[in-house]
Design a protein around this nucleic acid. Sequence first.
DNA 1: AGATACAAACCAATCGGTCGGTTTTTGCAA
DNA 2: TTGCAAAAACCGACCGATTGGTTTGTATCT
Lengths: 208, 208
Amino acid sequence: MSVAPTSAKPRRSQEERRREMRARLAAATLESLGESGYHGASLSDILGRAGVSRGAWAHHFSSKLDLVALAAEEMLRESTEVALNLVPADLPDGDRLAALLEATWTRFYQGPRREVLFEVALACRTDAELRARLAPVFAGFIAAVGQAGGRVLRLKPGAVAAVADLLTLTIYMLRGMALQEVTTGPDGRNAALRALWARLLGEWVEVG
Amino acid sequence: MSVAPTSAKPRRSQEERRREMRARLAAATLESLGESGYHGASLSDILGRAGVSRGAWAHHFSSKLDLVALAAEEMLRESTEVALNLVPADLPDGDRLAALLEATWTRFYQGPRREVLFEVALACRTDAELRARLAPVFAGFIAAVGQAGGRVLRLKPGAVAAVADLLTLTIYMLRGMALQEVTTGPDGRNAALRALWARLLGEWVEVG
DNA sequence: AGATACAAACCAATCGGTCGGTTTTTGCAA
DNA sequence: TTGCAAAAACCGACCGATTGGTTTGTATCT
């Protein structure tokens, strides 16, 4: 009787294996990066989380940096995707500008991704090789945010500033706020500050 | 003939020795942190820069964290001092708000201190002991900036926001801008953005 | 004399990375 | 379809280098 594999015989294809292994390692890397920081995310720690042997890792990656870079690239590319697919129609009526700001905040500057983002960005400063690999992806993300913002926002008549500039200021502001929360923990007053910023911003632009 | 010490006999007092040694180590620590990041600032690297033996270090500090914390504390306290002594009279006439913003930028978010500040702040996230030691000093710095700002800025009639909130938004903005430059290098366009922000801010507050 | 400041050899633990060997999948020839 | 060798996936022991930290001994100051 040629039965189907009973239990321990998944018979996965090599490509399937490869993809799953790399994904598992990348996920564990992000987890370790977020939990222990770039400084504490040792290879042993990552491999332990992923339940992957050293040999397997070596088979798929040429160095630790190679793994970290891939994980960061994947995360950034996903964020870029999200930014590009931002559609104003999804926003509720009423104060749409505030809603947009809030959406941007929760999407990009909250949750475990935020910690990883800061860790990796800062690590790029002192690691030329990592910077070389991630710079284009970072740039792509920034460009996507700018593109989405320019598509969604419209300058009010009489405004004295360009949409792109106001957008950059907004991103800087959110980023500084996020860094604050990374260091000191979440702070409820920041939500009020975002609302305030939306109100100020509303003097110059509107969601269209 | 009891001559004065000819050359290799400085005869420094113990307190003098102690202070100089600790200062030298702290300076080397900041240098290493700025150049190599928290991740790369090893004890060997620091001691090498300072030209200090391992034994001497151990005599003055109980651990690496002890040294790093002291160095960061000193730097933050100095910044706090600077913030507290901020006097609007020093500002030139003309666009005083823009001048104030620019002064804040160059004082706190430019130069080697900035890098160290980010490295240490981020390290605090994943190192509870470091965070415990530096949290009060960080808080003191923030409070000093707020106090100085509140003393220098005056709300214009009809403004809809509190000075403190606008101040916090400004700090967040500068911080996000600084983080950008940390990762991607200095960018001339940011100066124009600061000028723009000063103009927008001028709608609500004035330097008094 | 006694304490403090400093130096250098030394230590276990951990780091990223390598290496020989085993298991699983695959492509091709019989 | 089956047999089988090459290729790819995977494992864990092992490696030299480096980490933060200790220890033992000497010089300098009080």
